[in-house]
Design a protein around this nucleic acid. Structure first.
Lengths: 253, 253
DNA sequence: GTAGCATACTTGTATATACAAGTATAGCGT
DNA sequence: ACGCTATACTTGTATATACAAGTATGCTAC
């Protein structure tokens, strides 16, 4: 029990990050690391109050938001518990494919096909809310899970916001991981569709004839500017997007 | 200004629903009805405090959660504003297809192909966490947007939880709408995949040869029981799933 | 005129407190 | 042995209060 509470050592009241966020991050890390396993009971709010010397409302907010994000489950009158781990890539969160693959116990590798700067074609310019022809960084890479191609990443990046992007080595760190380090997205848009691959795409993803692809298009904003827009293409037979979460309240709109 | 505040008439402190939820619902309705338009400024927290005679923390919680759900946007030091309307079906929320189609100004109709009770096949039983062979209600329906087929719905329902399901007329009200009236889901799971339609499916959806389908599988829990699991199949060329939302904070896990 | 400062208003976070309501358990009486 | 109750602990919600920090506006000094 006290072993669990020791995880919360580095909560600082004068940190730039708010306290409730620090608590959330700590719990997230413990769960992600496999340190806390599914079904395990978390300390009660009151235990955390005395352990962290923080108001109960602050802890309540942290745990409530974690519940909404599906990381923990709370039962009125009983306690808080680590939720079952979702088996699929999350549609909700921004996830680094390398991390995701490794969390499933497989090996990730990637190959950069293209990394250059191009004049934005009209569709891309429209997506990025830039005038057409404006230079944008362009990346095309394949990601492998145990040597099997599982994702084609086609990404455009606004060089005004991310000037160093073109100089990175994306075989060692994925573009997603790099970008997440560099900025904090404040808005995202996801679009999911099913498409048939052309011959090039089929070859790149080692796909048999007649198999569809699942395509995820994501735009990411920071300070009301589109920082990056990316198209992730998955072989339909090898991948599934998914999400599972608690619905504290849902709505029709 | 006061016209806006009049929307909050029916907030009751003794209602079974919590106050913050009533506030959320009120705002959601006003936005959904088109009453409040994108970009419009909402009353400040303090204005709502005096208007509703409710603590600021309660209002703060309502607005904070609406922000997280992408319905409104808040700017520190400036105010709260109605967010831009998302253009696509949301992956996050449970959406009634009839409503969604009508919100795009089109006409919705649907045709029930099958509505019966069957012994649960093994895959369905597994999905619904029931013993195989247990009777489950089974619905198969096509949804049309302006006479064009746009979604095939294949649904299984746990009759223990929803005993009246088999007796409904699903040409007048969709199964989603009916179920949403009947219970409050407390957990959901979504899986999205790309599949090739077989001949039957191609015919039902009036699809040309060689076109893939986007398939959304959703399970819905209430009180830790699977109430319903549904597979929604869309023609790949006529539909796109999407979501856009603010990321108050995102995380890698 | 303009730069800079003061101010008023906004949201963001944190606290202490209170009561309601759900769950499990120990212990009592029969 | 069985059922009921009291109790202790849990989460859920609501309030009043406080301070921090961001934004816009208007005023003042130059």
């Amino acid at each position: 029990m006290s072993a669990i509470l020791e995880s919360f050592d580095d909560i600082s009241k004068s940190a730039p990050e708010p306290i409730y966020q620090q608590i959330k991050s700590t719990i997230q890390q413990r769960i992600a690391s496999g340190d806390w396993t599914a079904g395990q009971k978390l300390p009660s709010e009151n235990e955390l109050v005395v352990a962290l010397d923080v108001s109960r409302m602050t802890i309540n907010r942290a745990l409530r938001e974690l519940t909404q994000e599906g990381l923990i489950k709370r039962v009125h009158g009983l306690g808080s518990f680590v939720a079952e781990a979702p088996r699929h890539a999350s549609l909700i969160e921004l996830q680094d494919i390398a991390l995701e693959i490794e969390q499933h116990g497989k090996r990730h590798s990637s190959q950069v096909l293209v990394l250059d700067s191009v004049a934005a074609p009209v569709e891309i310019a429209a997506q990025m809310q830039l005038p057409p022809g404006r230079p944008v960084d362009h990346l095309r890479a394949i990601h492998f899970q145990d040597e099997i191609p599982i994702q084609l990443e086609t990404r455009y990046v606004n060089p005004v916001v991310m000037p160093e992007f073109g100089q990175q080595d994306f075989t060692r760190v994925t573009a997603t991981a790099y970008l997440l380090q560099q900025f904090k997205p404040d808005e995202m848009e996801h679009r999911v569709s099913a498409v048939m691959p052309d011959r090039t795409l089929r070859k790149l993803l080692s796909m048999p004839d007649g198999q569809p692809c699942l395509q995820l298009n994501r735009r990411t904003w920071s300070n009301d500017q589109v920082v990056t827009c990316v198209t992730l293409t998955y072989p339909g037979d090898r991948y599934e997007l998914g999400a599972r979460y608690a619905t504290d309240e849902y709505q029709l709109r």
